[in-house]
Design a protein around this nucleic acid. Structure first.
Lengths: 235, 235
DNA sequence: TGCTCGATGTTGACAGCAGCAACATTCACC
DNA sequence: GGTGAATGTTGCTGCTGTCAACATCGAGCA
């Protein structure tokens, strides 16, 4: 009938079918773009629908709510973070096992910060939706690569090659993670956001070198036994 | 006239004067309460006005916009953070200058984390509105106590008493800040939010001990000269 | 004493957001 | 070829921040 012809004509002209065909992917892509530009605040369902050229509620056919969309972006950010860390790892060509393990820990941290500085928006989204790290005690992760597992593996290597005192191993992953994460957060959205790039890089390298040395065996071990002890209860 | 009488009656009954009398303070207090409970997201101008019993726009007579209100809360949070750090500092009763300076650095970090864990909502608000740290080069702060200045003072003390190698001093403040800030962030809103309190405390103390040792002089100095070096450019 | 003006508070509007419900279109399969 | 499920749209509610116009009040001046 006539109305159908009009509809068909409009379709042929605008190339806009009623069914988008790939809306879920298109929304996810748009969400990643928005998050890169504006961080978590850029993830507005209606705005994304507008960008993709679809009505404001269509997204809810593919995502339960806004959080589900954020989770998808966080997943992509996680992948990017892992890739950045792996890129750095791959550059380590030391042959000496000890030097190699030490270098790998440093590069892991550098890769983490690399990603945070290169993709601050995605990095921020990632940490609004980061899953709880499981037990810290029960090792069996099984999952595919995640940054925390990579860090643990690097630290275990340091123990295996005899550089890291096994007694210092517990909690080391949290110490390392805290340092690089804090550095990243302070630099991308925090009080250090205006630090010049070269100064930032030098400071990061100094910090990573201190981490390397802090967990070094040898003279450190006996010094560690003389660590200052004092009242340690919380106030 | 009649209307006046009605108004007067309502006033006497509800004890609600047209002019609140202390709206700015009342709003700020309500904002702090809301931030304590729900973090930055709890700071909704309309909701606060509702709580204080005033119309939704009255707040704009006292705060230019929502950000101005957030700044006030951040200011109070900053005060709380400084107090928590000072409380911890005050507990150090070592007499030996070196041990005293080392202990003070550790307590500073512990106080920082204390506050973040005790007031996660306020801590988060603080870091959505934290001012840029000035130059990092030009010392003359002049301002009243702020956490970064306290940290710098503690590190300078460590140099003065001969524990911290002056060559290691530059950037040390960022390394220390990053570690405790990262620890705080990961633990209050991040992947470590479910860690048991006792384990958390032990891990923190281990990290602080490593910071203490990482910046120790002596054997560390020569080891530092042998630090692993490698390509350090960002990808 | 009474008036006036600035400070303070209110009402009403607009726009953007998340999300629910009812309706429309299309596709895939029987 | 028809029918039901999947997908997309329209319209609504209620929340938010913010602007503009109006109302009320208190302090200071005539």
């Amino acid at each position: 009938m006539y109305a159908d012809n009009i509809a068909a004509y409009r379709r042929s002209v605008t190339a806009t079918r009623y069914h988008h065909g790939n809306l879920r992917e298109a929304l996810a892509d748009a969400a990643v773009d928005a998050a890169r530009e504006h961080g978590p605040d850029g993830l507005a369902v209606r705005e994304l629908a507008r960008r993709v050229g679809v009505s404001h509620n269509a997204a809810y056919r593919h995502f339960a709510d806004r959080d589900a969309l954020v989770d998808v972006v966080a997943g992509r950010a996680l992948t990017g973070l892992v890739e950045a860390m792996e890129r750095r790892l791959a550059r380590v060509d030391e042959t000496d096992p000890v030097l190699r393990a030490r270098r790998r820990l440093i590069e892991l941290g550098a890769g983490y910060v690399d990603y945070a500085l290169a993709e601050p928006g995605l990095f921020r989204v990632l940490f609004t939706a980061y899953p709880e790290v499981p037990g810290l005690d029960d090792k069996p992760e099984g999952e595919d690569a995640d940054p925390f597992a990579m860090l643990n593996a690097a630290l275990d290597d340091l123990v295996d090659v005899g550089y890291l005192d096994p007694a210092s191993r517990p909690g080391a992953e949290i110490g390392c993670w805290s340092a690089v994460h804090g550095f990243a957060v302070l630099n991308i959205e925090g009080p250090l956001r205006a630090m010049p790039a070269d100064e930032r890089e030098a400071t990061l390298q100094a910090m990573l070198a201190h981490i390397d040395l802090a967990y070094g065996r040898g003279q450190g071990a006996e010094r560690r036994s003389r660590a200052v002890q004092g009242p340690q209860d919380a106030s």
